[in-house]
Design a protein around this nucleic acid. Structure first.
Lengths: 194, 194
DNA sequence: GGAGTAGCCTAATCATATTAGGTACCGAGG
DNA sequence: CCTCGGTACCTAATATGATTAGGCTACTCC
């Protein structure tokens, strides 16, 4: 019986593909084993547990996502950068629903902290906001607003939460524009705004 | 052996409580049966399936959420209403994480359509936005922006997604303020904005 | 070419969902 | 009071999936 030649990376990649095809919740060790023509138990040589597998997929997806965003944002600033950031974010979420869903799971904070993807994400996000001239704590508030809106929009959209006729892309563009506006006229901590 | 005296409503309510305590994903028929001191199979007299149970919890939570929001928004307008809406939304999400998580699941569109909660939610949301004087399609875009931000923020917050020191309530207040600002200076469809 | 290890397997256990069919308790009508 | 029907709950069985323990075998390296 020829071996499947599995490695941890292969298994995680296959799990990510499976997630995109069948939904992150349907990523099961059995399904994965079936896909490789292997027994369930064999996968335990490569991942510690289902939990471990999911965490690995989440980290993979997080890395891919920020790479896409970084590429899109490179060389841009201001609203240009914001639009590119938003576009790359949503495109990834729509192209890879399973991988994107993986990024939403609760992960051990320690694991996140030393993941390079996380650092990179913070760098790029704060870098993009530099053009708006915000200082702390407004900067953190703004980052939270952006993350929330992007994430919320993509989550609702891929859950079929937007029932109205209105074109979803058009609403997205408008939302990004509105966020740019909010960032431009940000209500600063110090009372003398503008 | 005394009967537990179950009904569908009791089972669903218990499932909602269980969700808040242990997480929506840990709502299992076995756990629920255990809580009632009953066998798993017995629950099938009251709910059709696990799927059915989850849908019922989702509808329950959706109804509770919009009731809270309606009460908070009543008699307010403009930014006042927006702040009240946002506050009630987030309070519910934080007080009832399991129920709130339930509202995020994919539900048969038909079921949603004729749920009174859904109609009520639309009414109240659009009503709240009336003060901003938006017309379609801006109104729909604005509703999508609000829903996305509120949902995204609560989802990230309860997933422990906000690592920075900055007070989470303060960021929320600022986000709501920023949204108010965006709504006030909304980039309208017609080109002559402002 | 022999030893070691990595990759895969069998077998077993446990939790959970779900179905089929049985039993017992409840209140209503005779 | 007693029986009758339905409802609430049960037992039993099947299936899927996670997980562990322990074994076999085919490459790899010396």
């Amino acid at each position: 019986m020829a071996r499947a030649g599995l490695t941890t990376d292969l298994v995680v990649a296959a799990a990510a593909d499976l997630a995109d095809e069948s939904g992150f919740d349907n990523v099961t060790l059995s399904a994965l084993a079936r896909r490789f023509g292997v027994k369930d138990a064999s996968l335990y040589s490569h991942v510690r547990s289902l939990q471990d597998l999911r965490t690995r997929v989440a980290l993979l997806a997080g890395g891919e996502l920020i790479d896409r965003i970084a590429a899109a944002v490179a060389g841009r600033a201001g609203m240009d950068a914001l639009v590119a950031f938003a576009g790359a974010y949503r495109a990834y979420a729509l192209e890879h629903p399973g991988r994107y869903a993986a990024t939403q799971i609760r992960i051990d904070q320690a694991l996140i902290a030393d993941s390079p993807a996380m650092r990179r994400t913070a760098e790029i996000t704060y870098g993009m906001l530099r053009a708006y001239g915000l200082g702390e704590p407004d900067l953190t508030d703004a980052v939270r607003l952006l993350r929330s809106t992007f994430h919320g929009y993509c989550a609702l959209e891929s859950a079929g939460g937007f029932g109205a006729d209105r074109d979803v892309q058009a609403s997205w563009d408008k939302a990004v524009e509105a966020l740019h506006l909010a960032l431009t006229h940000w209500p600063r901590e110090t009372k003398n705004d503008d």
